[in-house]
Design a protein around this nucleic acid. Sequence first.
RNA 1: GGCCCCUUCGUCUAGCGGUUAGGACGUCGGCCUCUCACGCCGAAAACAUGGGUUCAAGUCCCGUAGGGGUCACCA
Length: 479
Amino acid sequence: MLVSAPMSAPVRVRFAPSPTGYLHIGGARAALLNWLWARHTGGKFILRIEDTDQERSTEDAVRAILDGMRWLGLDWDEGPDVGGPFGPYFQMQRLGLYKEYAEKLVKAGKAYACYCSKEDLDAQRELAKAEKRQFIYPGTCRDLAYDPSRRHVIRFRLPKLLELTFTDLVKGAITRPGSTLQDEVIVRADGVPLYNFGAVVDDVTMEINLVARGDDHVNNTAVQVLLYEALGYPVPAFAHLPMILGADKTRLSKRHGATSVTAYRDMGFLPEAVVNYLVRLGWSHGDQEIFTMGELVKHFGFDHVGATASVFNPEKMVWVNQTWVKSLPPAELARRALPYYRAAGLEVEGDPRLPDVAKAYQERAKTLVDLVSQSRCYFAPVEMDPKAQEKFLGSDAAPILQAIRDGIAASAALDAAGLEKLFHDVAAARSLGLGKVAQPVRVALTGGTASPGIYDVILLLGREESLARLDAGLKLAGG
RNA sequence: GGCCCCUUCGUCUAGCGGUUAGGACGUCGGCCUCUCACGCCGAAAACAUGGGUUCAAGUCCCGUAGGGGUCACCA
């Protein structure tokens, strides 16, 4: 008989990564949705490290995952570093617990020792494959006497059943024929539990009442439901989140480019934007595209998580990021850009122009890296683009540069209105369009053809630097 | 191959029996303009397919096709 966890209990959800690599996009989304649900309901978000695969788990990966989550702003109420009442939160530190629960099952006849060798089982699998048969463990050791002195694993004794149905919050009812299930190994020969058992024991003991995870786990769920029952605990609610695919519609992987969240940090994405993009991949709230964390917490629910896998679209993520870059207060944007300036070798710390630079560039920068590279001319010598020079700093530019130079040198105080008058006067005196005046000046001042409004550029550079660069430009123009 | 899940513009999606099938990214055209952006206006672009149920189906049911996932002493 299935027992459902009472949903009136405070929500306890978890993210349980295995530390075999960095925090990837898919894991980040699973973590995010769990976190949002916990915050939405006022429940708890637990972080548990499933490090029972000793071959592949590393401490570096643990660090990378915690890093990624912190960067995204996903704080956990219980877990590594913060502890909690149901710890420890690393599975390898909970071995005694699994042993205890496994022994309970064995004593109750719900699990048994299996002495089959890996080699033997592999051979049986091969044979089945050759005969185009499905291999299901035949229960060879089901009724053997328990002999702890022989090397053995523990297998779950599958109850007789026609089929098993559980309800998924995003996919609805999912039914699995009992004939496709088998006596799964739940504890290895070395006493370390396997995923299906470790996760269930932990979810039970940590009082998790909603399990939201990638839908690559749907096929594990039937056995897990049976394990909850065998252990005598209520079954939690499940929400299986569709995969994130690459452009070729296969599961997102390294082949598809950057897949770690920290790679996006390094590329100059804002965490708000990554969160915003990831949540919209599969979840929606009407037509709204841009959400603050607060709005997400307010509106998020599994009822609007779609059941279909979605393709990761880097262009749209860039757009989301750009939208966020535009919306940050300039001083804040400047503060966020600091590490990226440093990474680019630019010493900008304490430069009072920073917020103004950010303001001038925030609607043209798609990322923080972009912001830095576009604005480096204020913090480093001009790097002249040869094509720009050839096109705009010819001999005909010399008198224009000279006129602007003289105008700036003669002006009492530099301001936008004065500069506008100067440029218009210079243009009018020669019957030129404003562009004919502004472009050579822009190239002389920035080294390129694209920049914010020319008056803003001059104001950012200041009188001395502007004059110096105009002089240098004059030299190049043969003036 | 068995089993499970999925199927609205190229992509992310709205839709929860009656809509000119809406929005967003991207694309294309135009406006704005000192460049680049931003912004604004406009265009092309979708219900995989075949049967049902119903007065009425993108919405419900079944089949087919396609896609994804999973079949370990990995998670």
